[in-house]
Amino acid sequence: MKEGLVRRIQCFKFSEERSAHVTHLLYIHRKRPSLIVQEIDIINPSEHSLDLDFKQKNQISNNDLKQLDQRDIQFDSNNDIYSMITNQLSIRQHNFIIYVIITNKIISNCHVKPGSPEKQIILTVVKFSSVISENSLLNKTYSQEIQEQLQKQAKYDMSDALSISSIRLLKEHIDTWSLIWQSGFTMSRSLAPSTMNGDVINRTIYYILCSTPAPLYELNINETKRNELNQSLFQIDQCYESHST
């Protein structure tokens, strides 16, 4: 968690002669808040080829969710096909949020040669509107403008992410995440019995940080705003005074 990454390692045994190791790396990019990156590495240590099927889960049905648009798109930087979905989500007090998701469609079949690795990188961009009242949504022109604006922003963010390598994306994220600890804020390694241990606190910290905007580190912030945010960090009345971790 010090690097802002979640890793999962899985081992699969298909038969006495066939097995695979799968490493899954996931992170919400700290410098590009709309971007989610997944890297899946498959290693075939056996002497036999593996043919694997992948399934990309469809969106879970929800009574509060309404799909407004869905289409396949492509970007100039590669030949991959991306799915762009625009949804409308009902929230409290008759208000709504419109959001757009762009993600690349994964390869459904994967052939892994003996002793060879296979890698898939899945990029997902999510852009969402501010809260919209029910009355405002009745204006179809206004609603359509919001959809088109979000779709344009999502396409731009995805195109920008595709313009650099996955290695650079990862380094950019880790370097930005490491700036959090310069203030002296830390994660604990304590696993002492009968206490609020570091693993629980660390997971909470990680979830909050991933779910909270960090405008100071974002790419598109102007210098004036950046200076204002830097100055706000030195306000003593905002210091943390709870559990020591």
Rank of each mutant, 00 (worst) to 15 (best):
T212K: 02
L52E: 06
I40A: 06
S244W: 02
I73T: 10
P213V: 15
K2F: 13
D72W: 04
E47Q: 08
N197L: 06
K152A: 12
Q151N: 05
N58W: 00
I167P: 03
D69I: 03
N139L: 05
E218P: 07
P213R: 00
D80R: 09
R226T: 14
G184E: 02
A192M: 12
K55D: 08
R71W: 00
Q235E: 12
I43Q: 01
F96N: 05
R8H: 05
Y240P: 10
S242I: 11
V200S: 09
C239K: 08
I60S: 13
P114Y: 06
E17S: 07
N104G: 14
I97R: 03
E145G: 06
I9C: 05
N95P: 00
V131N: 00
N78Y: 03
S143N: 03
V37M: 08
L89W: 00
Q59N: 08
N79T: 14
D51C: 11
I180S: 04
F96Y: 12
Q182V: 15
S244G: 12
S194A: 11
V6W: 01
P193I: 12
K127H: 08
K13P: 03
S165W: 02
F14Y: 11
E148D: 09
D76F: 05
V125E: 01
K2Y: 10
Q235T: 15
E223A: 12
I98M: 04
S188P: 14
I201Y: 04
S194D: 13
H173D: 04
K119H: 03
Q67L: 07
T86S: 08
Q182E: 12
I106V: 15
C210F: 00
S211K: 05
H24D: 11
L150F: 07
I97W: 00
T23F: 08
I146N: 01
Q56P: 01
Q151T: 04
M1V: 15
L150R: 02
S211I: 04
R30K: 11
A192F: 13
T176A: 14
M84V: 15
T245Y: 10
S19F: 04
L191Q: 10
S116Y: 01
Q120M: 12
S165M: 13
R18H: 06
E172W: 00
L65Y: 02
R32M: 13
L138M: 10
N44V: 11
K127S: 09
A192S: 14
I40D: 01
A192C: 10
Y240F: 11
E118F: 10
